[in-house]
């Protein structure tokens, strides 16, 4: 067998107990406990999510480096994961994320109108944040809510069968 995969465990010689907050460390530890002890790196995705959520929705290089230390990983391996998956953001974000699905089923049910509406009314293109920092508009691939198209993921909640007016109401209610 030619294929071998081993954890990339390395020792950073930094005190893990100074990283993040006790709450975040406890939350990451709960994930680490799900995997074999030599596979701390398996917790990198939930760790990135937890740290990103606690940092206003985006990741800095310093935070990714801290995750590398906490999980005994080479920093590059953390960067690889953070840049590969679509839900990690490496730039400052608005206070909310408005993710409009624009894959086939949503497109057939009018997702492009939703995007155009938000673009015009709030002056943002997908990937941009409103001038007041209220939200970042994102055009995302299939959310798996095709029967309730068009769908929008607003922070952590799905909103379905949306019209431009209904989406407006949701956005108006954002802080």
């Amino acid at each position: 067998m030619s294929f071998r995969n081993l954890p990339l465990a390395i020792d950073h010689e930094r005190d893990k107990s100074t990283l993040f907050t006790p709450e975040i460390r406890a939350a990451i530890d709960k994930h680490i406990a799900k995997y074999p002890s030599e596979w701390r790196q398996s917790a990198v995705m939930p760790a990135l999510t937890l740290v990103q959520d606690a940092n206003g929705g985006w990741l800095t290089q310093a935070l990714m480096d801290d995750i590398a230390v906490y999980l005994d990983m080479p920093p590059m391996s953390v960067y690889e994961v953070a840049t590969f998956y679509g839900m990690y953001d490496l730039e400052p974000q608005g206070r909310h994320k408005v993710c409009v699905c624009n894959s086939i089923s949503c497109m057939l049910q009018g997702s492009e109108e939703l995007i155009e509406h938000v673009e015009h009314k709030y002056g943002v293109k997908p990937g941009e944040t409103t001038a007041d920092g209220r939200f970042t508009l994102k055009e995302v691939e299939c959310l798996g809510a095709c029967r309730d198209a068009p769908a929008v993921l607003l922070d952590k909640t799905y909103h379905e069968k949306l019209s431009p007016d209904a989406l407006d109401k949701l956005i108006d209610d954002l802080e």
């Binding site: 596979w39 994961v81 679509g86 839900m87 990690y88």
Partner: peptide, 28 residues
């Protein structure tokens, strides 16, 4: 185990790589 936005992780060996804390790239 939570994913983080990558269609390719539905490919079974990419999914395994992802659980191992890596980019979701399918295995040969």
């Amino acid at each position: 185990h939570m994913g983080a936005g990558a269609y390719i992780c539905g490919e079974e060996t990419a999914l395994l790589e992802s659980i191992e804390g890596k980019k979701g790239q399918p295995r040969f």
